Computed example of a mutant assay.
Amino acid sequence: MRAVWLREFGGPGVLVAGEAPDPVPGPGQVLVEVAYAGITFVETQFRASGRGPFRAELPMIPGNGVGGVVAQVGPGVDAGLLGRRVVTGTGGSGGYAERVAVAADGLFAVPDGLALDEAVALLADGRTAAMLIDAAGPGPGDRVLVEAAAGGVGSLLVQLAVAAGATVVAAAGGPGKLALARELGAAEAVDYRASGWAEGTDPVDVVFDGVGGAVGRAAFGLLARGGRMVSFGLSSGEWSGIPEEEAEARGVTLLGLRPTPGAVRRATELVLAEAAAGRLRPVIGLRLPLDRAADAHAAIESRATTGKTLLALAPAAAR
Protein backbone atom coordinates (compact mmCIF):
# COMPACT_ATOMS: atom_id res chain seq x y z
CA MET A 1 0.00 0.00 0.00
CA ARG A 2 0.96 3.66 -0.31
CA ALA A 3 1.83 5.54 2.86
CA VAL A 4 3.75 8.59 4.04
CA TRP A 5 6.96 7.93 5.94
CA LEU A 6 8.66 10.04 8.58
CA ARG A 7 12.30 8.90 8.82
CA GLU A 8 13.78 12.00 10.44
CA PHE A 9 12.48 15.10 12.18
CA GLY A 10 12.58 18.39 10.33
CA GLY A 11 10.72 20.54 7.82
CA PRO A 12 7.66 19.39 5.86
CA GLY A 13 9.93 17.87 3.20
CA VAL A 14 10.88 15.01 5.53
CA LEU A 15 7.43 13.53 4.84
CA VAL A 16 7.95 11.20 1.87
CA ALA A 17 5.37 8.92 0.26
CA GLY A 18 6.35 5.34 -0.45
CA GLU A 19 5.35 1.73 -0.10
CA ALA A 20 4.47 0.04 3.19
CA PRO A 21 3.30 -3.46 4.15
CA ASP A 22 -0.45 -3.95 4.23
CA PRO A 23 -1.62 -4.16 7.86
CA VAL A 24 -3.44 -7.29 9.00
CA PRO A 25 -6.18 -6.98 11.64
CA GLY A 26 -5.49 -8.99 14.75
CA PRO A 27 -7.92 -10.13 17.45
CA GLY A 28 -10.40 -7.36 18.23
CA GLN A 29 -9.30 -5.30 15.25
CA VAL A 30 -10.66 -4.29 11.87
CA LEU A 31 -8.99 -3.19 8.66
CA VAL A 32 -10.21 0.18 7.40
CA GLU A 33 -9.80 1.19 3.78
CA VAL A 34 -8.94 4.85 4.30
CA ALA A 35 -10.70 7.55 2.29
CA TYR A 36 -9.53 10.56 4.30
CA ALA A 37 -6.83 11.20 6.88
CA GLY A 38 -6.97 14.26 9.09
CA ILE A 39 -3.96 16.42 9.92
CA THR A 40 -3.60 18.31 13.19
CA PHE A 41 -1.31 21.17 14.18
CA VAL A 42 0.17 18.91 16.86
CA GLU A 43 1.29 16.50 14.14
CA THR A 44 3.21 19.28 12.42
CA GLN A 45 4.99 20.04 15.69
CA PHE A 46 5.85 16.38 16.20
CA ARG A 47 7.20 16.09 12.66
CA ALA A 48 9.39 19.15 13.18
CA SER A 49 10.94 18.24 16.51
CA GLY A 50 9.74 14.90 17.83
CA ARG A 51 8.05 16.69 20.72
CA GLY A 52 4.39 16.15 21.48
CA PRO A 53 1.95 13.57 22.83
CA PHE A 54 3.06 10.83 20.44
CA ARG A 55 5.59 8.17 21.38
CA ALA A 56 6.98 6.44 18.34
CA GLU A 57 10.33 5.34 17.01
CA LEU A 58 11.50 6.35 13.55
CA PRO A 59 10.88 5.41 10.85
CA MET A 60 7.13 5.68 11.26
CA ILE A 61 3.94 6.49 9.40
CA PRO A 62 2.36 9.55 11.06
CA GLY A 63 -1.33 10.29 11.40
CA ASN A 64 -3.91 9.72 14.10
CA GLY A 65 -7.39 10.29 12.64
CA VAL A 66 -8.91 8.53 9.63
CA GLY A 67 -12.21 7.74 8.00
CA GLY A 68 -13.15 5.05 5.55
CA VAL A 69 -14.89 1.72 5.13
CA VAL A 70 -14.35 -1.46 7.13
CA ALA A 71 -12.84 -3.92 4.64
CA GLN A 72 -11.89 -6.81 6.92
CA VAL A 73 -12.48 -7.96 10.49
CA GLY A 74 -10.08 -9.76 12.74
CA PRO A 75 -10.77 -12.72 15.03
CA GLY A 76 -13.58 -12.12 17.49
CA VAL A 77 -15.02 -9.10 15.67
CA ASP A 78 -18.61 -8.89 14.43
CA ALA A 79 -18.69 -9.43 10.67
CA GLY A 80 -21.63 -7.03 10.56
CA LEU A 81 -19.09 -4.19 10.59
CA LEU A 82 -17.97 -5.05 7.07
CA GLY A 83 -18.79 -2.25 4.66
CA ARG A 84 -19.61 0.25 7.40
CA ARG A 85 -18.48 3.87 7.08
CA VAL A 86 -16.45 4.73 10.15
CA VAL A 87 -14.04 7.25 11.64
CA THR A 88 -11.44 6.35 14.22
CA GLY A 89 -8.15 7.22 15.84
CA THR A 90 -5.11 5.08 15.17
CA GLY A 91 -3.34 5.47 18.49
CA GLY A 92 -0.95 8.16 17.27
CA SER A 93 0.60 6.66 14.15
CA GLY A 94 -0.22 4.93 10.89
CA GLY A 95 -2.95 7.29 9.64
CA TYR A 96 -1.27 8.67 6.52
CA ALA A 97 -1.81 5.42 4.66
CA GLU A 98 -4.25 3.64 2.38
CA ARG A 99 -5.17 1.09 5.07
CA VAL A 100 -5.05 0.90 8.84
CA ALA A 101 -5.67 -1.86 11.36
CA VAL A 102 -7.42 -0.43 14.42
CA ALA A 103 -9.34 -1.60 17.47
CA ALA A 104 -12.98 -2.35 16.67
CA ASP A 105 -14.14 -0.82 19.95
CA GLY A 106 -12.60 2.52 18.94
CA LEU A 107 -14.74 2.93 15.83
CA PHE A 108 -17.40 5.60 15.42
CA ALA A 109 -20.16 4.94 12.91
CA VAL A 110 -20.68 7.80 10.47
CA PRO A 111 -24.37 8.78 10.61
CA ASP A 112 -26.48 8.68 7.49
CA GLY A 113 -26.57 12.06 5.81
CA LEU A 114 -23.05 13.02 6.92
CA ALA A 115 -20.28 12.98 4.33
CA LEU A 116 -17.20 10.96 5.24
CA ASP A 117 -14.82 13.89 4.83
CA GLU A 118 -16.94 15.98 7.20
CA ALA A 119 -16.93 13.16 9.75
CA VAL A 120 -13.12 13.00 9.63
CA ALA A 121 -12.95 16.78 10.03
CA LEU A 122 -15.00 16.42 13.22
CA LEU A 123 -13.14 13.47 14.74
CA ALA A 124 -10.39 15.29 16.65
CA ASP A 125 -11.45 18.92 16.37
CA GLY A 126 -15.14 18.35 16.98
CA ARG A 127 -14.79 16.37 20.17
CA THR A 128 -12.19 18.85 21.43
CA ALA A 129 -14.57 21.75 20.77
CA ALA A 130 -17.47 19.97 22.46
CA MET A 131 -15.42 19.19 25.56
CA LEU A 132 -14.15 22.78 25.72
CA ILE A 133 -17.72 24.08 25.59
CA ASP A 134 -18.69 21.65 28.34
CA ALA A 135 -15.75 22.78 30.49
CA ALA A 136 -16.36 26.53 30.15
CA GLY A 137 -20.16 26.39 30.05
CA PRO A 138 -20.96 29.50 27.99
CA GLY A 139 -24.62 30.45 27.88
CA PRO A 140 -27.11 33.27 27.26
CA GLY A 141 -25.72 36.64 28.31
CA ASP A 142 -22.08 35.57 28.02
CA ARG A 143 -19.59 37.25 25.71
CA VAL A 144 -17.19 34.61 24.44
CA LEU A 145 -13.85 35.27 22.76
CA VAL A 146 -12.68 32.49 20.43
CA GLU A 147 -9.07 32.70 19.30
CA ALA A 148 -8.02 31.08 16.01
CA ALA A 149 -11.72 31.29 15.18
CA ALA A 150 -11.27 30.14 11.59
CA GLY A 151 -9.26 27.05 12.52
CA GLY A 152 -10.44 23.48 12.85
CA VAL A 153 -11.38 23.72 16.54
CA GLY A 154 -12.10 27.46 16.57
CA SER A 155 -14.64 27.36 13.73
CA LEU A 156 -16.58 24.72 15.63
CA LEU A 157 -16.31 26.61 18.93
CA VAL A 158 -17.88 29.66 17.29
CA GLN A 159 -20.89 27.62 16.20
CA LEU A 160 -21.28 25.71 19.48
CA ALA A 161 -21.02 28.85 21.60
CA VAL A 162 -23.62 30.62 19.44
CA ALA A 163 -25.89 27.57 19.73
CA ALA A 164 -25.52 27.82 23.53
CA GLY A 165 -26.88 31.37 23.38
CA ALA A 166 -23.61 33.26 23.83
CA THR A 167 -22.42 36.30 21.89
CA VAL A 168 -19.19 35.38 20.13
CA VAL A 169 -16.21 37.63 19.49
CA ALA A 170 -13.99 35.92 16.93
CA ALA A 171 -10.25 36.60 16.91
CA ALA A 172 -8.38 35.49 13.81
CA GLY A 173 -5.69 36.62 11.39
CA GLY A 174 -6.72 38.34 8.17
CA PRO A 175 -9.89 39.49 6.42
CA GLY A 176 -10.77 36.10 4.92
CA LYS A 177 -10.67 34.33 8.26
CA LEU A 178 -12.65 37.11 9.96
CA ALA A 179 -15.30 36.87 7.24
CA LEU A 180 -15.55 33.11 7.75
CA ALA A 181 -16.03 33.56 11.51
CA ARG A 182 -18.85 36.04 10.92
CA GLU A 183 -20.44 33.64 8.46
CA LEU A 184 -20.39 30.96 11.16
CA GLY A 185 -22.25 33.21 13.59
CA ALA A 186 -19.72 35.47 15.32
CA ALA A 187 -21.25 38.84 16.24
CA GLU A 188 -17.87 40.58 16.25
CA ALA A 189 -14.52 39.79 14.66
CA VAL A 190 -11.08 41.23 15.45
CA ASP A 191 -7.73 40.69 13.74
CA TYR A 192 -5.25 39.64 16.43
CA ARG A 193 -2.34 40.45 14.12
CA ALA A 194 -3.12 44.16 14.49
CA SER A 195 -1.21 46.06 17.15
CA GLY A 196 -3.37 46.75 20.20
CA TRP A 197 -6.24 44.62 18.89
CA ALA A 198 -7.53 43.93 22.40
CA GLU A 199 -7.67 47.60 23.41
CA GLY A 200 -10.79 48.25 21.36
CA THR A 201 -12.57 45.06 22.42
CA ASP A 202 -15.15 45.09 25.21
CA PRO A 203 -14.71 42.75 28.18
CA VAL A 204 -15.66 39.10 27.80
CA ASP A 205 -16.81 36.33 30.12
CA VAL A 206 -15.10 33.36 28.47
CA VAL A 207 -11.87 33.00 26.48
CA PHE A 208 -11.10 29.95 24.38
CA ASP A 209 -7.35 30.27 23.93
CA GLY A 210 -6.08 28.41 20.88
CA VAL A 211 -3.10 30.63 20.09
CA GLY A 212 -1.24 31.14 23.34
CA GLY A 213 1.68 33.53 23.66
CA ALA A 214 1.03 37.26 23.47
CA VAL A 215 -2.41 36.76 21.91
CA GLY A 216 -3.54 34.54 24.77
CA ARG A 217 -2.19 36.94 27.36
CA ALA A 218 -3.97 39.87 25.71
CA ALA A 219 -7.20 37.87 25.64
CA PHE A 220 -6.79 37.10 29.35
CA GLY A 221 -6.70 40.83 29.98
CA LEU A 222 -10.19 41.15 28.49
CA LEU A 223 -11.80 38.82 31.01
CA ALA A 224 -14.24 40.33 33.45
CA ARG A 225 -14.33 39.24 37.09
CA GLY A 226 -15.88 35.79 37.27
CA GLY A 227 -14.63 34.96 33.80
CA ARG A 228 -13.28 31.64 32.60
CA MET A 229 -10.34 30.88 30.34
CA VAL A 230 -9.49 27.53 28.82
CA SER A 231 -6.37 27.01 26.73
CA PHE A 232 -6.37 24.34 24.05
CA GLY A 233 -3.62 25.28 21.62
CA LEU A 234 -0.35 27.10 21.12
CA SER A 235 -0.20 27.96 17.44
CA SER A 236 2.04 30.88 18.44
CA GLY A 237 4.62 28.36 19.63
CA GLU A 238 4.08 28.83 23.34
CA TRP A 239 1.31 28.57 25.93
CA SER A 240 -0.15 31.74 27.39
CA GLY A 241 1.45 30.97 30.73
CA ILE A 242 -1.02 32.90 32.89
CA PRO A 243 0.08 32.62 36.56
CA GLU A 244 -2.57 31.02 38.74
CA GLU A 245 -2.17 33.72 41.40
CA GLU A 246 -2.76 36.47 38.81
CA ALA A 247 -5.95 34.77 37.68
CA GLU A 248 -7.14 34.38 41.26
CA ALA A 249 -6.43 38.05 42.00
CA ARG A 250 -8.66 39.05 39.10
CA GLY A 251 -11.38 36.54 39.95
CA VAL A 252 -10.75 34.53 36.79
CA THR A 253 -10.87 30.71 36.62
CA LEU A 254 -8.29 28.93 34.48
CA LEU A 255 -9.72 25.71 33.12
CA GLY A 256 -8.18 22.66 31.47
CA LEU A 257 -9.31 19.44 29.83
CA ARG A 258 -8.74 16.06 31.43
CA PRO A 259 -10.83 13.89 29.14
CA THR A 260 -11.81 10.37 30.07
CA PRO A 261 -12.47 7.73 27.40
CA GLY A 262 -16.18 8.02 28.14
CA ALA A 263 -16.16 11.80 27.75
CA VAL A 264 -14.28 11.54 24.46
CA ARG A 265 -16.79 9.06 23.08
CA ARG A 266 -19.80 11.12 24.16
CA ALA A 267 -18.34 14.30 22.68
CA THR A 268 -17.48 12.59 19.38
CA GLU A 269 -20.93 11.06 19.01
CA LEU A 270 -22.52 14.41 19.87
CA VAL A 271 -20.73 16.40 17.17
CA LEU A 272 -21.28 13.70 14.54
CA ALA A 273 -25.01 13.71 15.32
CA GLU A 274 -25.19 17.52 15.33
CA ALA A 275 -23.47 17.70 11.95
CA ALA A 276 -25.70 14.99 10.48
CA ALA A 277 -28.72 17.01 11.64
CA GLY A 278 -27.37 20.13 9.94
CA ARG A 279 -26.77 22.04 13.17
CA LEU A 280 -22.95 22.00 13.01
CA ARG A 281 -20.80 22.69 9.96
CA PRO A 282 -17.23 21.41 9.82
CA VAL A 283 -15.08 23.67 7.68
CA ILE A 284 -12.69 21.86 5.36
CA GLY A 285 -10.24 24.35 3.96
CA LEU A 286 -7.84 22.09 2.09
CA ARG A 287 -7.85 18.59 0.62
CA LEU A 288 -4.67 17.18 -0.87
CA PRO A 289 -3.68 13.71 -2.12
CA LEU A 290 -1.57 11.44 0.05
CA ASP A 291 1.63 12.16 -1.89
CA ARG A 292 1.32 15.85 -0.96
CA ALA A 293 1.33 15.42 2.81
CA ALA A 294 4.41 17.65 2.98
CA ASP A 295 2.49 20.44 1.21
CA ALA A 296 -0.39 20.01 3.66
CA HIS A 297 1.96 20.39 6.64
CA ALA A 298 3.59 23.43 5.07
CA ALA A 299 0.21 25.08 4.49
CA ILE A 300 -0.82 24.56 8.11
CA GLU A 301 2.46 25.95 9.43
CA SER A 302 2.24 29.03 7.21
CA ARG A 303 -1.24 29.83 8.61
CA ALA A 304 -2.58 29.61 5.04
CA THR A 305 -5.44 27.25 5.91
CA THR A 306 -8.90 27.60 7.36
CA GLY A 307 -10.78 24.84 9.13
CA LYS A 308 -9.54 21.31 8.70
CA THR A 309 -6.85 20.02 6.34
CA LEU A 310 -7.39 16.51 4.97
CA LEU A 311 -5.47 14.00 2.89
CA ALA A 312 -7.77 12.39 0.30
CA LEU A 313 -6.74 8.82 -0.45
CA ALA A 314 -9.46 6.65 -2.01
CA PRO A 315 -10.91 7.29 -5.48
CA ALA A 316 -14.30 7.87 -3.89
CA ALA A 317 -12.73 10.63 -1.81
CA ALA A 318 -12.48 12.83 -4.90
CA ARG A 319 -16.26 13.23 -5.01
Rank of each mutant, 00 (worst) to 15 (best):
I61P: 00
D78R: 13
Q72C: 13
G11L: 09
A103R: 15
P12D: 15
A119E: 09
G52H: 11
A101Q: 02
L15H: 05
R7H: 08
L107Q: 05
P23S: 10
A115E: 05
A20N: 02
G11H: 10
G92W: 01
A109E: 14
A97D: 01
L116T: 02
G13C: 05
V16H: 11
F108D: 10
V86I: 02
V110C: 11
E98A: 00
G89M: 01
V86K: 02
V32C: 08
V77N: 06
V100Q: 00
G113S: 04
F9P: 12
L114I: 06
R99I: 02
L82C: 09
G89K: 01
V14Q: 11
L15G: 05
G18C: 08
G38D: 08
Q45M: 12
R47W: 15
V100F: 00
R51M: 12
G92M: 01
V14A: 13
G18R: 02
G74A: 09
G94I: 05
D22T: 13
A56C: 12
R47V: 12
L116M: 07
Q72V: 12
G18H: 09
V77L: 10
V69H: 03
D22N: 04
P23Y: 06
P53R: 14
E98Q: 07
F46A: 13
G26C: 12
Y36S: 10
A103Q: 07
S49P: 08
D22V: 12
G13E: 15
P23T: 10
G63F: 00
V42F: 11
A37D: 07
M60C: 13
E118V: 10
G83D: 01
G18N: 07
A101Y: 05
D105I: 01
A109D: 13
G10N: 06
V66C: 08
T90H: 07
G92N: 07
Q45Y: 06
V16M: 07
N64C: 08
V32T: 09
G63E: 03
G80Y: 01
P27H: 11
A97M: 05
G76I: 14
R51H: 08
A103E: 12
G83K: 03
Q72W: 15
Y36E: 13
A119F: 03
A37M: 04
L15A: 12
G68E: 01
G65Q: 14
G50M: 10
Q45D: 07
Q29C: 02
G50L: 10
V42T: 10
A119I: 02
P21I: 03
D117F: 10
A17R: 05
G113Q: 00
G10K: 11
F54G: 00
D22G: 10
A103N: 02
E19Q: 14
E8H: 04
P21M: 04
L31N: 11
V24G: 09
V16I: 14
R84T: 10
G80D: 14
T40L: 04
G95R: 00
L31R: 15
P12S: 14
Y36L: 09
E57A: 15
G95T: 01
P25I: 14
G91I: 11
G28D: 14
S49Q: 06
A79V: 11
G63K: 00
A115Q: 03
P59Q: 05
G67H: 08
